Amino acid sequence: MDAAERDLFAQTLRKMMTVASGRALDRALADLGWSDLLTEVPDVAVPLTFGLLGETGAHAPLLNDVLLHAAGRAVGGTLPLPYAGGAWVVWERTDEAGDALDGELPLGSVAAGDPVPLAAGRRALGWWLLGTGRAMLALARSHVLDRTQFGRPLASFQAVRHRLAETLVALDGVESTLVAAEDDLGCLLAKAAAGQAALTAARHCQQVLGGIGFTAEHDLHRHVRRALVLDGLLGGARELTREAGALIREGRSAPRLVQL
């Protein structure tokens, strides 16, 4: 897929996610050839698709497909997914509200399932969390550019700028980590970093937006809920950080994620 085809694919995905979500988006992506893209160009399809899910606030049960494909099984179904704290959930391919913090996602608790190859799923979730963080940053940036306080634009206050700058640095660092992630440990670290960066974005953007960020009328709360749920899927940031530390101690060396 060359640059022009990639741009066209991204534009098509963004338009689809603007008008559809959930089961409707799942069907639209299937018609687009999602399963073929996952097989032929996963390094393009996964970052673009999951990143745009985060940026647009749409959702679809595509994590199932990534894990099923990695396990050598046919896509289009569901499977139990490990969740933070030792829980297990299933991401249904319906529009029925689930019992997760983010009520838009059809996630339901289930008994423990069979082990699944987690690396590809963690990397995909990392891209989704990155997109969610970018969406929150865009909302906060728009707010501080439009609003004034004490006769000055909010964006001119150093404390506000520092919070947004810290968020941007965290998100940019995650992108580099996701691009470099290849093996199990790399994907584990990338997912942990993405979860932490998204939670950092939620904290700083909530502070910058102030009271309006707590209201149901503003979109921030949707992205915050989404980040909290996605962080827990396939292991939360804290759990994965501890797991990575144990693996590094066991191997007595730290891997180089990026060749400088």
Rank of each mutant, 00 (worst) to 15 (best):
132 T>I: 14
120 A>M: 02
125 L>S: 05
140 A>V: 08
129 L>C: 08
130 L>G: 04
116 V>L: 00
85 G>A: 07
93 R>L: 07
140 A>M: 12
127 W>C: 01
106 P>V: 12
118 L>W: 01
81 L>C: 10
138 A>D: 15
122 R>L: 00
116 V>T: 01
109 S>D: 03
103 G>S: 12
149 Q>V: 15
143 H>E: 11
115 P>Q: 07
132 T>A: 14
97 A>W: 09
138 A>M: 13
110 V>H: 03
88 W>P: 07
132 T>N: 11
85 G>F: 02
148 T>C: 11
83 Y>N: 05
145 L>F: 15
140 A>C: 11
106 P>E: 15
93 R>S: 06
145 L>Q: 15
126 G>V: 08
84 A>T: 01
102 D>H: 04
95 D>S: 10
98 G>E: 12
97 A>M: 11
100 A>K: 01
136 M>A: 11
144 V>Q: 12
105 L>K: 00
106 P>A: 14
97 A>T: 14
145 L>K: 13
144 V>G: 07
114 D>M: 03
112 A>L: 01
148 T>P: 08
121 G>P: 04
118 L>C: 07
86 G>C: 00
109 S>P: 02
81 L>S: 06
89 V>M: 13
147 R>T: 14
121 G>K: 01
137 L>Q: 15
139 L>R: 13
124 A>I: 05
136 M>Y: 09
146 D>K: 13
141 R>K: 12
107 L>P: 09
101 L>R: 02
